[in-house]
């Protein structure tokens, strides 16, 4: 539980550091000279970012940090993680406390246009859903009129919730907390009937419950939630690096390059594979990186499919299906512009 003092001081420090720091627009050379990447992640969301007993972070959002570190510094371990709650995340990025925000953050017009942020891609296509106690006997979100709803405050989820109930002419009692832990506690103690959140989050919150079998996720999906990594506006070079580090993972999956076969793929005759791995052309150098940046990502972190299955997919407790997150060639939305 972070106290309000911590929260206010982060916001205040952020406000102050906006005033004090001489704007540095070259994140790449800053990162190279300090030798590590400053990455902001969720404070605890299994599948997206959670720490094990030894303090090692894992999750699909954490892998984006690792990929960028591998691309820029050649070593996926050189990341300094800052765990942030929903309210702190943008100020932390704006103020330079972190250089990359990879914290299941929804890409919206307001955030893209007025917060001084750039979204560098979508590493998880999500949608908002509802988690209810089975004992309520509710089978559909349309039956939730009058329910008390727990939600994490300051999220797009909170706005979608208001829209959804208004659109359907239903009433609800809002119970807004600023951490997911308190949301879970509110649900378990019966302060609210329902939790609403991105449906991937609902699955990971559900396995944290004392009695997961006593609750269920409703079939309704009420919004589009494209989640992705975010950088500050005004540093296009850094924006490109993050964007193409992520694209490299998707392109690698499409080209059939995995962390296991990447070394043998170096000898491949396929020109696409050669360009991705930097055997041919100067794609990495155009970004201001080494030629083999994508090789490092794939070797050390893996391609998008590997990362997905390991963190949220069948190789994880969450068992989320690829669905919208399958490659475009397999009916999903994951698509990398060509490496050319």
């Amino acid at each position: 539980m972070k106290s309000k003092i911590a929260k206010i001081s982060i916001a205040t420090i952020a406000a102050l550091s906006l005033s004090a720091s001489v704007a540095s627009a070259d994140t790449l050379s800053d990162t190279l000279s300090q030798g590590y990447l400053k990455c902001g992640i969720n404070s605890g969301l299994p599948g997206f970012a959670s720490a094990d007993s030894k303090g090692h972070w894992s999750g699909i959002d954490v892998e984006v940090c690792r990929a960028v570190a591998a691309a820029v510094l050649g070593d996926q371990t050189k990341v300094k993680y800052t765990s942030l709650n929903a309210k702190e995340r943008f100020t932390a990025l704006q103020s330079g406390e972190i250089d990359l925000l990879s914290r299941n953050t929804t890409w919206t017009e307001t955030r893209d246009s007025s917060l001084g942020l750039n979204f560098a891609g979508v590493n998880f296509y999500d949608g908002q859903g509802f988690l209810v106690h089975k004992s309520l006997g509710v089978k559909n979100a349309k039956e939730l009129d009058g329910a008390a709803v727990c939600v994490q405050s300051g999220t797009t989820t909170e706005l979608n919730l208001a829209d959804y109930f208004r659109k359907n002419g239903m009433k609800y009692k809002l119970v807004a907390y600023d951490s997911n832990d308190q949301v879970l506690k509110g649900f378990e103690t019966g302060r609210c009937d329902v939790i609403t959140s991105d449906s991937s989050q609902l699955y990971s919150l559900r396995i944290k419950l004392k009695n997961p079998a006593g609750s269920m996720v409703l079939p309704n999906i009420i919004s589009k939630e494209p989640l992705g990594p975010v950088v500050r506006q005004g540093d296009d070079k850094w924006f490109n690096i993050v964007k193409w580090s992520y694209n490299a993972m998707v392109a690698a999956e499409e080209a059939g390059i995995t962390s296991k076969n990447v070394d043998s793929m170096l000898k491949s005759n396929n020109p696409t594979v050669k360009r991705i791995l930097g055997v041919e052309g100067k794609l990495g150098e155009n970004l201001g990186l080494k030629k083999d940046f994508a090789y490092q990502i794939i070797k050390q972190v893996g391609n998008y499919g590997e990362v997905f299955e390991r963190t949220v997919g069948m190789g994880s407790p969450l068992k989320i299906k690829r669905g919208l997150n399958a490659l475009w060639t397999k009916g999903g939305l994951q698509y990398s512009p060509p490496f050319r």
């Binding site: 539980m1 106290s3 309000k4 929260k7 206010i8 916001a11 952020a14 406000a15 906006l18 005033s19 929903a86 309210k87 995340r89 943008f90 100020t91 704006q94 103020s95 307001t110 955030r111 007025s114 917060l115 001084g116 405050s153 300051g154 999220t155 909170e158 706005l159 119970v175 807004a176 907390y177 600023d178 308190q182």
Partner: peptide, 27 residues
């Protein structure tokens, strides 16, 4: 203002918290 820990909607919770995150203008 410590109410923000339990979500009582006083100034810090709804304005310096939720509103700040929706519009992002910290200063």
């Amino acid at each position: 203002s410590l109410a923000t820990a339990i979500g009582y909607p006083e100034l810090v919770t709804v304005f310096a918290g939720t509103t700040l995150n929706q519009v992002g203008q910290a200063i």
